[in-house]
Amino acid sequence: MATQQKLAKLLADSRGVAESSITDKTTFVDDLKLDSLDMVDMIMQIGDEFGIDTDSMDPTTIKTVGDLTAFIDSKK
């Protein structure tokens, strides 16, 4: 499964929104309404699900699903 598709499914499941509503432009704060604890939760989930090290992930620079997809692919 492509990274963005898998990511969209994870976010859709955890946020209770339609997978089809998540695009690379979807933002975590304004669109998905993630708060700081949600962001931490997401970072840990990404690490588990994609088997990558998320220590260097800076939530202040990763604002959209597209940004996160690029980060995950760079760590694979």
Partner: peptide
């Protein structure tokens, strides 16, 4: 910490 994910992140750090 105020959540399990935060606790796990801190333990990992």
């Amino acid at each position: 910490v105020a959540s399990t994910a935060h606790a796990r992140m801190m333990a990992k750090s």
